[in-house]
């Protein structure tokens, strides 16, 4: 039996659970707002806006909690990239996902107490959590307070550009979510990784 590792402390699991709920709420309400149609609305427009705004503000607060938690507990070390040989490690991990795992090979970067994420996970988590999420938060807050947005940016409407950036970042986060959830099913058994984020223990 493999070693049991306590990888996900309570604060991280709480953050993750709230984050998941809020992201789902934001995606659902965001899609309703983005595709609003006078003849068919799944949810009232103003209600969707309120849900989106409240979820967005809560997500921002939760994100601050995530950053503080990472810094205070040292969890941030799992997000620090080692640039040397990175491309090689990314190719190695990709090869495992594309071929190795179908041939019964072992994962090239197994989880241990110093390595919570494989290289692909690490890069995608860094991009999602430190690029897309801050971007969606900043643009979202700007849209809540549109008076803070420059009226014109290089000849375009500032609000228009902010909204497009917000929608793009939100869309990429939802793509990340799809892949993230799917990759979590690659555990053995399928439920293994889901169980880990609930109990905190990785087996």
């Amino acid at each position: 039996m493999s070693e049991k590792l306590y990888l996900y402390p309570v604060w991280l699991r709480l953050w993750h659970a709230f984050n998941a709920l809020l992201i789902l709420s934001l995606i659902a309400s965001g899609l309703i707002i983005q595709n609003a149609n006078v003849d068919s609305m799944l949810l009232r427009f103003d209600l969707s806006i309120s849900i989106h705004n409240v979820s967005g503000v809560l997500l921002s607060v939760n994100y601050l909690f995530f950053i503080l938690g990472n810094v205070i507990t040292g969890n941030i070390r799992f997000y620090i990239l080692e640039w040397k040989g990175l491309m090689g490690r990314l190719i190695q991990q990709s090869n495992y996902y594309m071929k190795g795992m179908f041939n019964g090979e072992q994962t090239p970067f197994p989880v241990n107490k110093d390595r919570k994420f494989n290289p692909l996970q690490k890069v995608s988590y860094i991009v999602a959590m430190y690029v897309f999420v801050p971007l969606v938060i900043i643009t979202g807050l700007a849209l809540i307070f549109p008076e803070t947005i420059l009226p014109r940016v290089v000849g375009f409407s500032g609000i228009q550009l902010t909204a497009m950036l917000h929608a793009t970042a939100g869309f990429l986060i939802s793509i990340f979510l799809m892949v993230h959830v799917y990759i979590c099913t690659t555990g053995k058994p399928i439920s293994k990784n889901f169980k880990s984020i609930v109990t905190g223990w990785h087996e």
């Binding site: 595709n35 427009f45 806006i49 375009f156 409407s157 609000i159 228009q160």
Partner: peptide, 8 residues
Amino acid sequence: LNEAYVIG
């Protein structure tokens, strides 16, 4: 595009 943004 250059004039206004109307959500939705």
